[in-house]
Design a protein around this nucleic acid. Structure first.
Length: 419
DNA sequence: CCTCCACCGGAACGTGAGGAGT
DNA sequence: ACTCCTCACGTTCCGGTGGAGG
């Protein structure tokens, strides 16, 4: 058997050092480049607010606003890194820093635990703070003891704080209130908080007491416009790709344009660029073309949908499946009641617990949030008020994913065959 | 203009897993 | 073995509501 010519060509490229990528990590969302273009204003603001930390004075708390992919996180970590470096260079005690992503670390206990972790606060016996089990107050005092051991300044970045408050308004406020209040309980040390929010309306949901301390300073991140996106892309192309791999001007323009459509999200733009590059690489092409970009766009879309469906819990999947079955049955619009009936049948066929309508209603809302279905609350007058549900992705694709689940594909035949 | 349907969505509570300390 | 945590996932209860049809 002879080598497939493409693979042969691909290996040749590697041999000749002609691979597409030089450093693909430069396109990952966590990458912090040495220069951050178009965010001077924000960096200076944050820098001047954090500056006092170098003289041992506690900086004000900051709230950063802006949509996803506008560079909030990267600017915050950049400035913080610089601050710590500067302190070390100048023989000043560097501030402690902690970074919490509140979407992942979403509860009071876990936030505190993450803080302990980041500043290496330990249990009295020297072991790490456990995942669960302790009363929350216990953790608070561990944290306090560590901080107050000597004169410290702790700068906490709370990334995606809005998700903290959104998930549970009272609890979210409690967490933030607890953190801001901790300053009053510390003798030697101070905590400053940098809150990062994607949601501009986030402030409204905040307890006024929390807002007054947390929002001392505000920094706004506007979405990148097409020109700025281009600039960023050019910078990263330089870093990530080998020269000549992206020769076509049109590639950068297209990626920029597609991302600008998505409200100037730089993260998506970089992700798309990387995917396009990987496609080119896989095909053994010498350079990235606009075709790769378009294909990459589709691929990313498909992948995110597949990923979300696959990670869905069984009950949610059953609900989604009921919508799918009804939609396949030719219905353009599905109402909650119909959906619930179909769900009951499916749950029975799967010998799953049948949840109440109230719960299913919540699951429907979750599916909506995930973008798998679209819902609108409508009134049918005398015939009640309900949610109008539609699939937000193609039946084909959902079908293909759900069919992989053997149990589901079996009952799909039953139901569609019968209906 | 009023009624009344078929749900929406908030609130409070229950259960059980996962873990720590004693 | 028992008590005490947190937290995800559900349930029960219930007040609220846009608009077609009388």
């Amino acid at each position: 058997m002879t080598q497939p010519p493409k693979l042969d060509k691909l290996f040749d490229k590697f041999l000749q050092g002609q691979a597409i990528f030089k450093d693909r990590d430069a396109l990952r969302p966590t990458y912090v480049p040495d220069e951050l273009p178009f965010r001077d204003e924000q960096m200076n603001r944050i820098g001047s607010i954090l500056g006092p930390a170098l003289r041992g004075a506690p900086p004000s708390n900051i709230l950063c606003y802006g949509k996803t992919g506008t560079g909030k996180t990267v600017v915050a970590s950049y400035v913080l890194r610089l601050l710590v470096d500067k302190a070390k260079q100048s023989d000043v005690k560097p501030p402690m820093t902690a970074f919490v992503n509140c979407r992942i670390v979403g509860t009071n206990y876990r936030v505190l635990r993450k803080l302990c972790d980041d500043i290496q606060a330990r249990m009295p016996d020297g072991s790490e703070v456990p995942f669960t089990g302790l009363p929350t107050d216990e953790i608070r005092s561990i944290l306090k003891r560590k901080l107050d051991g000597e004169r410290n300044i702790l700068v906490v970045v709370l990334d995606e704080v809005d998700s903290l408050v959104k998930r549970d308004v009272s609890q979210g406020n409690d967490i933030l209130y607890g953190l801001t209040r901790m300053n009053g309980e510390l003798e030697n040390s101070r905590i400053s908080i940098i809150g990062i929010s994607n949601d501009l309306k986030f402030k409204e949901m905040l307890d006024p007491r929390v807002l007054s301390t947390l929002g001392e300073e505000e920094v706004v991140f506007a979405p990148y416009n097409a020109v700025e996106l281009r600039g960023i892309l050019e910078q990263r192309v330089e870093l990530a790709f080998n020269p000549k791999a992206v020769a076509d001007e049109g590639v950068i323009n297209l990626v920029g344009a597609l991302a600008a459509q998505e409200h100037g999200d730089a993260r998506r733009a970089l992700d798309l660029l990387r995917t396009a590059g990987e496609l080119a690489e896989r095909k053994g092409d010498e350079r990235v073309t606009q075709e790769h970009v378009r294909e990459g766009q589709k691929l990313i879309e498909r992948d995110t949908i597949t990923e979300t469906v696959k990670t869905l819990p069984m009950q949610s999947r059953a609900v989604l499946f009921s919508v799918y079955v009804l939609a396949s049955g030719g219905k353009r619009e599905i109402f909650t009641g119909e959906c619930y009936n179909a769900y009951e049948e499916i749950a029975r066929a799967l010998s799953l617990d049948t949840l109440t309508q109230r719960r299913v209603s919540d699951l429907i809302s979750e599916l909506d949030m995930l973008g798998l279905i679209n819902t609108t609350v409508i009134s049918k007058g005398r015939y009640g008020r309900t949610k109008k549900i539609r699939l937000a992705v193609s039946k084909k694709q959902i079908g293909a994913i759900l069919d992989e689940d053997v149990r589901l594909s079996k009952i799909a035949e039953d139901i569609t065959g019968k209906g």
